[in-house]
Design a protein around this nucleic acid. Sequence first.
DNA 1: TAGCTAACGTACTAGTTCGTACATTAGTGA
DNA 2: TCACTAATGTACGAACTAGTACGTTAGCTA
Lengths: 223, 223
Amino acid sequence: MTSVEEPARPGERERVRDAARTQAEILDVATQEFARAGYDGARVDEIAARTRTTKRMIYYYFGGKEQLFTAVLERAYGVIREAEQQLDVEHLDPVAAIRRLAEVTFDHHEQHPDFIRLVSIENIHEAQHIAASGKLARIGSPALDVIGRILEEGRRSGLFTADVDAVDLHAMISSFCFFRVSNRHTFGALFGRDLVAPAQRAHYRAMLGDMVIAYLTAERAAD
Amino acid sequence: MTSVEEPARPGERERVRDAARTQAEILDVATQEFARAGYDGARVDEIAARTRTTKRMIYYYFGGKEQLFTAVLERAYGVIREAEQQLDVEHLDPVAAIRRLAEVTFDHHEQHPDFIRLVSIENIHEAQHIAASGKLARIGSPALDVIGRILEEGRRSGLFTADVDAVDLHAMISSFCFFRVSNRHTFGALFGRDLVAPAQRAHYRAMLGDMVIAYLTAERAAD
DNA sequence: TAGCTAACGTACTAGTTCGTACATTAGTGA
DNA sequence: TCACTAATGTACGAACTAGTACGTTAGCTA
């Protein structure tokens, strides 16, 4: 995911034994393998084989397949959390801010298909690893606070009319971005349209923004 | 999915050997087991054990685990196709028709969580079973034709302004409905909100309709 | 530099899991 | 009613797979 073949920082000799590097390498390979084949389809032996270390080390550092998958999830969620913390849209007007936020979410999903697959897999297992993690359970999301503030501002200024909170809006944006990546294979096979084709990218990116803004700003019957 | 314990139609004695019934029973149990545990997590022995027949019959009728999963998918997709063929919304005005269509889609997703799981699983395997099916590849969807005609009517009457075709709109509606069910576990664990809680049902159902209609009817800068 | 421990490798096992060889019988058509 | 075949059951095997017992060594620290 992040750490790829760190070629021994200058001045620091490549040690033969480096716990941090070994763990990172295991996590890198495990991320790929779990994303590729699912939890049960993934093979511990295969992960070990594609590492410069052995299966023994996986059990030494992580305890087992289950905990390894949890560690993979923890690191993957850590990456989005970091990305979301970089979010800088609150200087924009509410409409532009929401559109920008939607675009950033769109881009992030597109750039991390492995993460999407891991989340799909975790849902098949009813989020049992997240629940067991402690590090992940109810951790929330920095984006949620940002969305909350933009929504408030938009409503105060009278631009936004919709009855949604930050979590709902996040679900709306995520569903579009997530589905486009997670279901591209069945959707493509059944309807003959590749949702992630580069030529369509701008179209779907605009579609998402238009959809969210239209929803938030639509004229509504008094209720 | 459909055939549950058919108790020997009247006048027809319960035969000991009934190929159709055996196959249907295998498919029922296999659907549950694959949806529960994923393709690799599902156990052929477990499927057989929960059947009135034996593992031998699974191989006799379906050939293997892979083909059994394909058969499960084929039947599951058949069910929605049937439901979509019942769709009767074209007597409504375009706005009401689209809203109704969205609601029907919403309801269908909610009522068939096993189907959602199967589709998620098939996407993890990059739709390889659909591709190998022939019966499923590029089969399309009756709903697509309906959507197409409503969109055309809506655009002709000037109500709809959005630049989408039927496939795009279907993707938009599906993404919301699908995500709500498929990702409810991770979403719930991370944000503390149950997207399928009965109390929230009407809220999300309206949200979907509002979103789609707002998108289709939004005033747009001339482009 | 001696010794201690975290880090690592090898080889193995117990249990599982898909798949099949072989034997048997219910039901049907001649 | 007889024979034939589709349908079915039993028992087993080969390959895989998560996990571990046991032994070794690099590198740090006193």
